[in-house]
Every structure is written in structure tokens, then in C-alpha cells.
Simulated scan of single mutants.
Amino acid sequence: MVTDESRCPCLSGNPYGECCGPLHRGATAPTAERLMRSRFSAFALGLPEYLLLTWHPRTRPEALELDADQRWTRLDVLATESGGPFDSRGTVAFRAWWRSDVERGTLEETSVFVREDGRWYYVDGVVG
């Protein structure tokens, strides 16, 4: 169980209560990278409602079922382009590690984000 004092699953180096925790409780992400990190943490913590909430309505699926056997263990941000507090669009390239009881793997993606009405949303991504 993750507490506010625990290391944040996104590996920012900050405690969960100062990093992704506030975003998971409703605070607005200031940048596309912060939203992407909070979405990784949501996968790691099993928070599909947050993932749907932060997914742009144009591309959001009706429902999202997470694989309970898949554990997300590490996130490396490889590059960002735009996505700052005054931008309306940005991209974040990342590599994420996962494992299950029978296998391990990585996901490398360049994610596209848009900011509308002061909130960042995940639009889609290109898996690399």
C-alpha cells in the first residue's frame, strides 16, 4: 500500500503525497510530463478511474480494465517537447517497465497531450 510518505511510483524522487497523490485526488497537473507521470502511477496503483478522467474525451475508451497480474515498476522519461504551463499541446516520450509472475517487459511510447480549459489530457500515443 502506498502512503503519502511513500516514494512515488513515478520515481520522481518525491513522496507520493507531494507528487502524484494530489493529482490522483483532483489537483490539476501543471505540465504534460506531470500528467504522464501521474498516469504511470495510476497504472502502478490500479486507478482506472483516474486514467479515464485524464484521457481526452475524443479518444477515451468506454471502459478500462487493468491487468491485475501486470505490475508497473519503473518509469524513465526520455524526452519532452512543449507541454509546459503555458502550452496547449505537448509530447512526452517514455519507457516503462512491467512484470508479471511469468514475464517481464517494457513499453516505449511517445504520448500526445493537449491542454483544454486549464487541464491536461492524454490524447494518444505512438508505441516505439
Rank of each mutant, 00 (worst) to 15 (best):
P48H: 13
R7S: 12
R89L: 02
V123L: 15
P30S: 12
S88C: 06
P15H: 08
M1V: 04
W98A: 05
R60W: 07
E103K: 01
D4G: 15
Q70G: 00
S100P: 01
W120A: 01
T106N: 04
D67T: 07
V77A: 11
T54A: 09
Y122K: 00
Y121V: 01
D76P: 07
A42Y: 14
L45P: 00
E116R: 13
L64Y: 09
T91C: 05
Y122V: 00
D124F: 09
G90R: 00
D101A: 15
R7I: 06
T59H: 11
C8G: 15
L107T: 11
R37M: 08
V126S: 14
S41C: 07
D101N: 03
Y121M: 03
R58P: 02
P9S: 08
G26D: 12
L52S: 11
F40S: 10
M36P: 10
Y121L: 08
V112W: 02
Y121P: 00
R34E: 15
G26F: 04
T73G: 01
T91L: 08
A27Q: 15
A79Q: 14
R25A: 12
L23M: 11
R58A: 15
R37D: 14
R99V: 02
S12R: 04
G13F: 08
R25S: 11
L11P: 01
G84M: 00
L52I: 05
D101F: 08
L45S: 12
S38G: 07
G13C: 08
P61Y: 06
A44E: 13
E5R: 12
T3S: 15
P85A: 13
R39P: 01
G84I: 00
R39A: 07
D124Q: 10
Q70N: 02
P48T: 13
R119V: 05
S82H: 14
N14Y: 11
H24S: 09
R104T: 11
T110V: 14
S88N: 10
R104G: 02
S88H: 08
E62K: 13
W72V: 03
E62P: 00
R115M: 03
D76M: 06
F86L: 07
E108N: 09
R99G: 01
T80G: 01
A42G: 12
S38F: 00
G26M: 10
H24V: 03
G128C: 09
